[in-house]
Design a binder for these strands. Structure first.
Lengths: 332, 332
DNA sequence: ATGAAAGCGCTAACAC
DNA sequence: GTGTTAGCGCTTTCAT
């Protein structure tokens, strides 16, 4: 194993100089810099992560807590993860993967053993059990998602309430009077996951303002439950002409189910969705984009800013952007 | 921060004794053990990961390289990841997440800076560029997937060749004479991903043995390409009565597309798939299970065994298990 | 602008 | 069965 002393010897400088060349924490003459870099290249030197962490109290690792629960749409989850990983690497950070099922113990372990400099926690619930611990932790933390009380926490997410409202308002502007929400899977509501609850709130608020009837129905991502959902929705409201879909896994089945009830999209039923742009494009859906890349990227940036001692906004809510596509048309 | 010296003082023993209690590398009297554990509990002690890694040359971290490429079915990928993470935690290992796009540099970085004790690499191609490096690495490595030449490597995967053969033989045993393969996305073949190639080989070998006509067609997971695939397949072989599907993302569209051509499953067309069991169950598909959990778990076990200096089998091929469900019936 | 040296917290000889 | 001590490889004072 090649160590810093080897590089120092090879470049004819002190070990500390090599360290300073690498960290940039001290001005070094261009000649020495060049010599050191050259030696590093020739010898293939990499600093020992443990030794560095021990001496500097910095691991250059971000711990990312991901949910592994029913109802979480996996491709969307992975979009967050890859965005976080990519942005982290840009700043020379690595990702330590923690799973939700370790719960608070995992957080304590990471902090206790100095495994990471900062935590990013996904899939936050309105009344998340982990919040008291997270508030008490000395390790800076960024939440992707908003709990009921985000006080004292750093949170970032799409403004799901505004997103729900935007969906409803789009349908309202097209003249639709009776609208249904095909919601997330049951489990997501039962857990009180923040984004699901907020979408509902946003839609209901907007519906009230516009005098529109709104009926909501959770839905699991399988053809049978989609069929049931459509039957229930149309059974209670045969005059329903608009649907808001907040569930990435049901669209294909939904369109087919509607057809079995004689409704074609968009002629007899308009659909506005909330989900990733590529997904909406693939299905030609008018949709509010779920900007997983941006959220993940900004979560890392908030984390790094906190590490730099900058003070960061406690709440970052991204404004919804609705893109009209082929799944909506004016009500007749 | 509470350190080992604090625990030692609190328990009235030497720091090394605390270390030995934790590692079990030396016999310690029950009384001392109890006292030390009690002190650890009271003080909330966790060993500093960096310090431990520096002194012991063990990080207790497994680096997992995941693919982020077109054509990879994300839910299946995540099944591997979660299985690996869960098994790793059972043995008190953590997961460092590396993405494919870092390529060889990522592997060198992990080894160079002693970030992990062992590597697990997913999505191996037949002629994978990383193989020379992996062979040369002193860090033990486990591959999930088989390259063309697995010599000198530790690999584990489902026996995809046997899986392909099992699919074909199931259809053959039901009397089907003309069979199509709805394959993985184009990109998967273009890259020469091991499992896709091997399935093909397995099917073709079995087809030859059984005198069955087999036509293959890659397929992207969107309704339009599925439609094209079905049109091509049926256009060239109107007598086709069996389909092997090696593509988790197309089933729903496939069934609908077949219907537009007047074929119902299983009455006019039998389908045998390769994919995760829950997925096959959800779609009521006769299928060879893709045991992502078992593969992930065993990959970790192979990795840990290598760390223990045990010598492990170079190649672990899991035998395919085909479960008949509702998507196949005898040819009429 | 550079060097020398003192730790960072832990493990693993080496003692007894 | 337990204590003492010498590093592990790096960063960061302190010194020049």
């Amino acid at each position: 194993m090649v160590k810093i002393a080897d590089v120092a010897r090879h470049a004819n400088v002190a070990a500390s100089t090599v360290s300073y060349v690498l960290s940039g924490k001290r001005p070094i003459s261009p000649e020495v810099q060049a010599r050191v870099h050259e030696s590093i290249r020739i010898l293939g030197y990499h600093a020992h992560a443990g030794a560095r962490a021990l001496a500097s109290k910095r691991t250059n690792i971000i711990a990312l807590v991901i949910p592994l629960r029913t109802g979480v749409h996996v491709p969307v989850l992975m979009q967050f993860v890859t965005a976080v990983a990519a942005r982290a690497r840009e700043s020379d950070y690595d990702i330590l993967l923690l799973t939700q099922d370790e719960g608070e113990r995992g957080l304590q372990r990471v902090q206790g053993s100095s495994l990471a400099d900062v935590l990013i926690v996904m899939d936050v619930e309105m009344q998340d059990e982990r919040l008291p611990l997270i508030r008490a932790l000395s390790t800076p933390t960024v939440l992707i998602g908003f709990p009921a009380d985000p006080d004292g926490l750093t949170c970032i997410d799409l403004d799901f309430s505004a997103a729900g409202a935007a969906c409803l308002e789009h349908l309202a502007s097209l003249g639709h009077k009776c609208v249904g929400l095909v919601g997330s899977p049951y489990a997501v509501y039962e857990r009180g996951t923040g984004f699901a609850t907020r979408v509902l709130d946003g839609i209901e608020g907007a519906a009230e303002r516009h005098g529109i009837t709104i009926t909501t129905h959770p839905c699991d991502p399988n053809p049978a439950d989609v069929q049931t959902t459509v039957r229930d929705l149309l059974g209670h409201h045969p005059d329903m002409t608009g649907l808001i879909v907040h569930n990435e896994g049901v669209v294909e089945s939904l369109v087919h189910a509607l057809r079995t009830f004689g409704r074609r999209v968009p002629d007899d039923m308009s659909i506005v969705a909330i989900g990733p742009n590529e997904w909406a494009e693939r299905h030609n859906l008018t949709a509010v984009a779920l900007p997983a890349d941006e959220v993940g990227t900004r979560a890392v940036e908030l984390a790094l800013a906190q590490l730099d001692g900058k003070d960061v906004p406690a709440a970052s809510l991204l404004a919804p952007v609705l893109t009209p596509r082929g799944s909506t048309r004016p009500s007749t």
